[in-house]
Design a protein around this nucleic acid. Sequence first.
DNA 1: TCTTGACCTTCCCATTACTGGAACCCTTAT
DNA 2: ATAAGGGTTCCAGTAATGGGAAGGTCAAGA
Lengths: 128, 128
Amino acid sequence: MNIKEVATRTGLPAKTIRYYEDIGLVTPDRAENGYRSFERTHLHKLAFLARARGLGFSIEDCRGLLALWEDRERASGDVRAIATAHLAEIEEKIAGLEEMRATLSDLVSACHGDDRPDCPILKRLEAG
Amino acid sequence: MNIKEVATRTGLPAKTIRYYEDIGLVTPDRAENGYRSFERTHLHKLAFLARARGLGFSIEDCRGLLALWEDRERASGDVRAIATAHLAEIEEKIAGLEEMRATLSDLVSACHGDDRPDCPILKRLEAG
DNA sequence: TCTTGACCTTCCCATTACTGGAACCCTTAT
DNA sequence: ATAAGGGTTCCAGTAATGGGAAGGTCAAGA
């Protein structure tokens, strides 16, 4: 299977697939003409990566998850640990963003937003 | 005022202040020895930037906000437009993260997380 | 006076996870 | 023969810093 088809099937851009090969996440074979040649296993792996990335796991997390996935003797606790840590990061991010949202939406609704220069948003940025 | 003091007063790392000069957000004077010399206006500007960045505004947004801040004849509507757009971005990010959080926390609680290999998290990543 | 340590400077590289583009090769159909 | 539509490599850029090297400057103490 050539890269384009893998791209359409996994939803990953071809560029990204090449990048994943670069950093050692997949290792497709090569046809005689130099084209990458993907087997079903590679496709499967890339689909796995696409889903993990979709859940926000970092590339390095993905590398770890992939290794565990391929390890028949893995401990599910190891997988869970990665996921839990990631979940915590996400929750932190959400908390930060929600704080921003609260402040911003206050400011936006306090600002009349017309042609006059008077602006509570700037005032807040000016004075903390 | 030397950079270190500006850094402590604004909470911005010295590196960041230099960077802001690089990209034209502030233009401190120079002392004879080549050291940057910050006036109160620069300090003020940098504090403004620190707050705007703290609310998640991009550097380019900050540039725009700074310009409006310094424009006596600005329309508050212009400020509000920037803030509104940014608020929308933040809300999108939050929505994305919350989706991830929901899925992840489901998976984490479905995974017993012990020494056995059986793992619903991997199963999900495998099969979508 | 010399030295030490805390500043300051510029410059370049690394980060994350790609994306864009150039220059070029291969295949298939017309 | 040529054109379209693959494929390849490599180089550079993104956002907003952070790290660190190599070196200049300054103030204080022995």
